[in-house]
Amino acid sequence: MSLRENAMDWAVRRTGRTPRATRSLVFALGCLAVLALGVVLTRMVDNPYVFFAGYVVIQYVALATGWNVLGGYAGYINFGPTAFYGVGVYMAAFLVKAMGAPLPVAIAAAGVAGALLGLAMGWMTLRVQGVYFAIATIALVVMAETVIHNIDYLGGASGLALMPPQAPAWAGGQPQFMLMVMLAIAVAFVALARWIEISAMGRGLRALKASEIAAECAGVPTFRLKLIACAVSGAMLAIAGAPYVYYASFIEPGTAFSLALSLNAIAMPLIGGKRSWVGPVIGALLLATVQQAASVTISSELNILVVGVVLILFVAVAPDGIVGIVEKLTRRRGA
């Protein structure tokens, strides 16, 4: 065995990794299995509450995954995920009201709007210092809400009732259909996030997170890469909002730009682990399920308080989240 094969072999044994192609195949099969499971469950379960709660949980998987593309890989904290989400919601609302647009059109338009908003934010704030981007995103939510308040066509501050197109007959009802749509979006997002993570783009983002100057000197076009990440993440967050119009039929600024949504979309990747696609998924499933289950028993204030405290604990003690803790434990056992 040559020295090089020896090193590769050693590296593989060390991480216990199977070749990349095999891992991708397993991942793809897993995605298909999740989708199939969703279809089966919507046929078997009768309780509509399950669909509504499930929609919320899966929407958080999509939001957390979208947020993490920028916040986790590049380390650029976006404090206004609901600004993008809300823009997606209102883009869809506009299209439904104006032309009764079908869901795919609304999703595509929301994606474009989110990407453009991400580009604009990035272009204006990313050239100075990372912190400024984060600060600007805090104010972005106020800005987006102010704009919506001033658009009478979209209901202003009081909200807007809509008649979105109904679900196709084969879906077995609107709640079932919306759950499947959200599941498909979430699975597509996770696949996209994983692809970014293992691609040159993901390596570039992680490199610039560690050191922008070193990344730049290693040939990484840091500004362009950050802009792309802003656009992709913005598009994902907005797309996650578009189906809400078809799910709820009534929208108002308070829910489209809700603080709880922002808080969760940020806290879930940070608690689950922001370095890989697994973290946001785990964080979202865990946090959102607990919140759904507990929503009857504890007040929404207490809910926010608990999330806030847990967030501080993770940020302070386990910055790599649950995934980081698990990795540390298994590494220790393996060594």
């Binding site: 040159a200 390596r203 570039g204 490199a207 290693a218 370095r275």
Partner: peptide
């Protein structure tokens, strides 16, 4: 044009191998 830094600036959070893949990705994939 390549440079190294006086105070090493490794890409932390990535493996040593991945550290080397970053410039390869960008410059000579």
């Amino acid at each position: 044009l390549s440079r190294s830094f006086q105070i090493p600036k490794p890409f932390t959070g990535m493996t040593v191998l991945e550290n080397l893949l970053v410039p390869i990705d960008q410059i000579s994939p």
